[in-house]
Simulated scan of single mutants.
Amino acid sequence: MRKEDCFYLGKIAKKFSFKGEVLIYLDTDEPEIYENLESVFVEFNSKNLIPFFIENSNLHKNDFLRVRFEDVNNEEEADEIIGCEVYLPLKMLPKLTGNKFYYHEVIGFEIEDKRLGVFGKIVAINDSSAQPLFEVLNGEVEILIPMIDHFLVKIDRDNKKVIMDLPEGLVEMYL
């Protein structure tokens, strides 16, 4: 499985028992939908995704999934996977509707302002700052648009467009 075909679910945070159980921190608003997984992909050496099959699992203190993997039978074997990131195939993401969207879903969408019309294509999402930003390409010019619910009018999945009502001057200052 390629990392591009997966989404980040969380990280193996710590050991839980001397029998090799681990706690996976789930980076999600709905941890309960991941309680009965058959398997996950664990990233080794920042490049290889290895399938790990789950013997049993249950939620632990809201954000953690207590997991017993097949073939991880003791503390030493559990130590080898502590800190590793955990992924699932994109097809396992719950479908979002309306103006809710996954960041990867809108890459390649055109971005349109109610006043200016289409002014570029979303090439990336920058979520490293306090406010996530759409990185938009207009020819050779990169435009950064804050992802603010108040500005968002519609996610038009059929026409691959993000329609916004942006403050006057925000886009123009880049052009």
Rank of each mutant, 00 (worst) to 15 (best):
I50L: 10
V72H: 03
A78R: 05
I50V: 15
E105D: 11
A124D: 15
Y87M: 03
P132N: 05
I54V: 12
F101H: 07
L88S: 05
L96T: 02
F69I: 04
S129A: 14
V72Y: 02
F64Y: 15
A124I: 03
F109V: 07
A78E: 00
G83R: 09
L93P: 00
L49K: 00
K61P: 01
S57P: 06
R68I: 02
L49R: 05
R66W: 10
P89C: 14
A124M: 06
E76F: 15
V118H: 03
F119V: 02
E76K: 11
N74W: 03
D63M: 10
T97E: 13
M92N: 15
K114S: 14
N73R: 14
N58M: 14
F109T: 09
A124W: 10
G98C: 12
K114E: 15
A130M: 07
E75V: 09
P51W: 05
V123R: 15
E112D: 07
E76W: 10
T97G: 14
I82G: 12
E76L: 08
K91P: 01
E76I: 10
N56P: 01
D71S: 11
V86L: 06
R68K: 14
Y103I: 03
E80I: 11
D79S: 09
N73Q: 13
I107E: 06
E135V: 15
M92V: 09
Y102V: 03
S57W: 01
L96E: 14
Q131R: 12
D63E: 12
P132H: 10
V86D: 02
L133I: 01
Y102G: 00
F64N: 02
S128P: 02
L59A: 12
K121D: 05
R115H: 06
A124S: 11
L59P: 02
R66E: 12
F69T: 07
K114H: 00
R68V: 14
F64D: 04
E135Y: 02
G108M: 08
I81E: 01
K61Q: 13
F64A: 05
T97F: 15
K91V: 13
L88W: 10
E85N: 14
I107A: 09
I111D: 01
K114I: 13
N58P: 02
E77V: 04
R115T: 08
G120T: 05
E110T: 14
L88V: 07
I81V: 13
K100R: 14
K121A: 10
L59I: 13
N126D: 15
G83I: 06
E80H: 13
G117N: 09
V67H: 04
H60P: 00
E85W: 08
K100N: 07
R68G: 14
E105I: 03
E135W: 01
E76T: 06
G108A: 11
V118D: 03
L90D: 10
E76D: 08
E80G: 04
K121N: 10
P132Q: 05
L88T: 06
N74M: 05
D63Q: 12
I54C: 07
G108Y: 04
E112N: 06
F109Q: 01
Y102H: 04
A130R: 15
A130S: 14
F69R: 08
